[in-house]
């Protein structure tokens, strides 16, 4: 039996909408992943603590607030500090194309902008998770 892929779906930042995160959580579940959903307004510290305790393979962050430039790299950095940098970090949301190279530079594996079919991150995860 193949090991089950576990994904943390987190919604950092201050805005109060988690519809996008819920849609992606359901799509991941239907793809056979175990999704740990942490709810709204998570700090990078909380996301990293949850990712460690849940030992997820993937940390998927959904952002709308425009703070992606600092929040996502911070999560990558904290994971590294805690000795848990084997996790794939991906992001989604309204993120300007110009910002994406810097995020990747900072260790975010991939960024999915609005309109991307859910099958794309699912395939990305299946291909990149080290199992």
């Amino acid at each position: 039996m193949a090991d089950k892929i576990r994904v943390l779906v987190a919604k950092p930042g201050l805005d109060g909408h988690d519809r996008g995160a819920k849609v992606i959580a359901r799509a991941f579940r239907d793809a056979g992943f175990e999704v740990i959903y942490t709810g709204l307004r998570q700090t990078p510290e909380q996301i990293v603590a949850a990712a460690i305790q849940e030992d997820v393979d993937v940390v998927a962050m959904s952002l709308l607030s425009g703070a992606h430039g600092t929040l996502m790299p911070k999560v990558v950095k904290l994971l590294k500090e805690k000795g848990a940098d084997d996790k794939l970090v991906i992001g989604g949301g309204v993120i300007p194309d110009d910002d994406i190279p810097a995020l990747k530079e900072a260790g975010v594996a991939e960024v999915f902008t609005p309109g991307t079919p859910t099958s794309v991150p699912i395939e990305f995860i299946k291909t990149h998770v080290k199992k």
């Binding site: 089950k4 056979g32 740990i36 959903y37 949850a50």
Partner: peptide, 26 residues
């Protein structure tokens, strides 16, 4: 059917994530 799951119990336990004396697993 898919073997997948949405594990949402942590939503109610957010504050506990950062407590050194607590460990939560879904």
């Amino acid at each position: 059917f898919t073997g997948g799951a949405i594990l949402g119990d942590r939503i109610r336990m957010s504050d506990l994530s950062l407590d050194d004396g607590v460990f939560i697993r879904s």
